[in-house]
Computed example of a mutant assay.
Amino acid sequence: MHQVIELKGVSKRYGSSGAPALGPLTLSVAKGEALAVTGPSGSGKSTLLNLVAGLDRPTEGAVTVAGRRIDRLSEYALARFRREYIGMAFQFFNLLDDLTVTDNIQLPAQLAGTGRREAAARAGELMEMLGIHKHARAYPGRLSGGERQRVAVARALVNRPALLLADEPTGALDTASAHGVRDLLVDLHRAGQTIVLVTHDLTLAQECASRTIHLVDGHVALDTCARAVR
């Protein structure tokens, strides 16, 4: 099976003393897999996500994403790679308040060189799929937390990334909105999207992921496959 993520002997240290923040770690994630990463604060979850996203570089080891050895890429090449192959959705949405929902979603496509008409068509397709089309001309500040997270996910998917990274996507949401985002992640996984989900919410991990790893002190303490996602 094709591997979207391959980490080989990866470790990350901050400073010259003390234990690594992560690793050494060897891990692979297959195409179409939904991996949840859990663990207490300080266990290495965010470090792992940053290494996979190319936002940080390992102290040791190799990080390969979508067939590219990203730890060897220049900063410019990394930025281009992220635009083309990685979509990211964060806990606090990171939407641009002075742009409409449509403009927020299509911005990464335009930055990647997609024509305005094609980017708008893709944004419209995603808004229909995610149930937010009626908000196309609204500004993020007028939306609920759940709606803003759906906009953030649409923006993350606009370039059809090989990999979707979701960092605590329900952490800032009320219960009803969190259920909506959970259902969205389940639907995306069913459709074949490869997902890495970092969360403190074990229920979210159980319901959305086909596999869960639990980190403790930068190491995988548990690696389990779930029953079929509902």
Results as ranks from 00 to 15, higher is better:
177 S>A: 15
108 P>T: 03
88 M>W: 05
108 P>L: 15
8 K>I: 11
116 R>M: 10
156 A>S: 08
94 N>S: 05
81 F>W: 09
211 R>D: 06
224 T>L: 10
179 H>S: 11
106 Q>P: 00
23 G>N: 06
127 M>Q: 14
81 F>C: 14
182 R>M: 15
172 A>H: 02
133 H>D: 12
43 S>F: 07
169 P>T: 01
20 P>M: 13
193 Q>W: 11
179 H>I: 08
90 F>M: 07
44 G>Y: 03
219 H>I: 14
48 L>Y: 08
214 H>K: 15
19 A>I: 08
72 R>N: 00
192 G>N: 14
65 V>C: 04
115 G>C: 03
137 R>C: 05
114 T>N: 08
63 V>I: 13
219 H>G: 00
111 L>E: 02
197 L>V: 07
4 V>Y: 09
28 S>W: 07
50 N>T: 02
210 S>L: 10
196 V>S: 12
121 A>N: 03
81 F>A: 08
18 G>F: 08
166 A>L: 09
71 D>T: 01
218 G>A: 06
47 T>R: 13
208 C>Y: 01
173 L>C: 01
161 P>G: 04
131 G>E: 03
222 L>M: 09
124 G>Q: 02
209 A>H: 10
201 D>C: 13
68 R>H: 10
1 M>R: 14
68 R>K: 14
200 H>G: 10
209 A>R: 15
46 S>L: 10
24 P>I: 04
24 P>V: 12
87 G>K: 14
195 I>D: 11
22 L>T: 08
122 R>S: 03
